[in-house]
């Protein structure tokens, strides 16, 4: 196995959301001894991305993919755990604002992810100008270059986002990320909101960019077909936890975790069909009140009493193939 440099590494990162409480509510909570309901959106997740690698993250809606993506890009702070960028502590990395641009994100919603009040040229060029990557006088030129790189006309810089289609807007979002020369690109369901035909174009664009620049990528999706097509390794998430992490070929060939197995069983064979999750038996439990022990036990047909009590940690089945199931 050849030694490759790790670009990004997360160690047991967690994120809890507390409902916003006013002063009065906080006081009454304290007096009555009630604890406000918290959401453990991401629960002790560890993963890493190597130079030039594409890591896939797959999971149902609400399992914490976007929260994880925002922690990876430094948009959200972590509630626990550590992040490292090229082996540097993430907080000191983020403090060097210009260097912190090396991790960029492409967002899910092509509508709300672009500021409708700014012209496209400004949207793309602002970060580079603010951080002195290009002087303000060359912002338009820089933005035009980025637009061409993502397959849009250079004269789009003077138009507003609402004058573009969803696919074009997603290209603008990609151009914005590329404009600050990132080394790690996190794509959070970047094509989920688009038509299937447009999805393919955007996927091809991302693959081209990856090939040209040797960018590392984290590709988040609930679409197993896309993940299989794009990623070198895949992490499967369930209710805030990573339940299986392996090379793509290995994961699709030998899924170990019962949840992964059910996902793959629900995946249509014919790739022309729209590839989304087939309903898995049982409800998705509420993240406000997750099941004890292994979160998956209410839906798992291999569940034992042990599963209801203890939390399964990630363990290696074969080298490089991690899973979190007590009975696998």
């Amino acid at each position: 196995m050849q030694v490759v440099q790790t670009v990004f590494q997360a160690d047991e990162v967690s994120r809890v959301f507390e409902p916003a409480r006013g002063t009065i509510e906080k006081l009454t909570d304290r007096l009555t001894g009630k604890r406000p309901a918290i959401v453990q959106a991401v629960d002790r997740v560890s993963l890493s991305v190597a130079q030039g690698e594409t890591l896939g993250i797959v999971g149902e809606s609400g399992c914490g993919k976007s929260t994880l993506a925002r922690m990876i890009t430094g948009i959200l702070p972590v509630s626990g755990g550590t992040r490292r960028f090229r082996n540097e502590d993430y907080d000191s990395f983020l403090a060097r604002r210009r260097d912190a641009l090396k991790v960029q994100m492409v967002f899910q919603d092509p509508m709300s992810s672009l500021n409708g009040r700014l012209k496209v040229g400004e949207i793309i060029g602002e970060g580079a100008v603010v951080h002195g990557i290009v002087p303000r006088s060359r912002m338009r030129e820089h933005a035009a270059k980025m637009l061409e790189r993502v397959g849009l006309a250079a004269d789009s810089i003077d138009r507003y986002p609402h004058q573009f289609s969803g696919g074009q807007r997603q290209r603008i979002g990609i151009a914005r990320a590329l404009a600050v020369e990132p080394e790690l690109l996190v794509c959070d369901e970047a094509v989920a909101a688009l038509d299937v035909s447009v999805q393919a174009q955007i996927i091809n664009l991302l693959m081209d960019i990856r090939q040209e620049s040797g960018l590392s990528m984290i590709f988040i999706s609930h679409d197993l077909g896309l993940i299989r097509h794009l990623c070198d390794r895949v992490a499967v998430m369930y209710l805030g936890r990573v339940v299986e992490l392996a090379k793509t070929s290995e994961l699709f060939a030998n899924p170990v975790h019962p949840y992964t197995q059910m996902l793959l069983a629900g995946m249509p064979r014919i790739s022309t069909e729209r590839r989304t999750f087939m309903p898995i038996k049982g409800e998705i439990p509420s993240p406000l009140n997750p099941p004890s022990g292994c979160h998956f036990h209410p839906r798992c047909d291999r569940a034992t009493d042990h599963c209801r009590i203890s939390r399964p940690d990630l363990r290696e089945k074969v080298p490089g193939h991690l899973h979190a199931c007590l009975n696998a």
């Binding site: 948009i75 604002r97 994100m105 967002f107 919603d109 992810s113 672009l114 603010v130 914005r176 600050v180």
Partner: peptide
Amino acid sequence: KEYIEAARGMRLP
């Protein structure tokens, strides 16, 4: 909205 997260990702003041 996501465009604010994008601005945060751009490390804007």
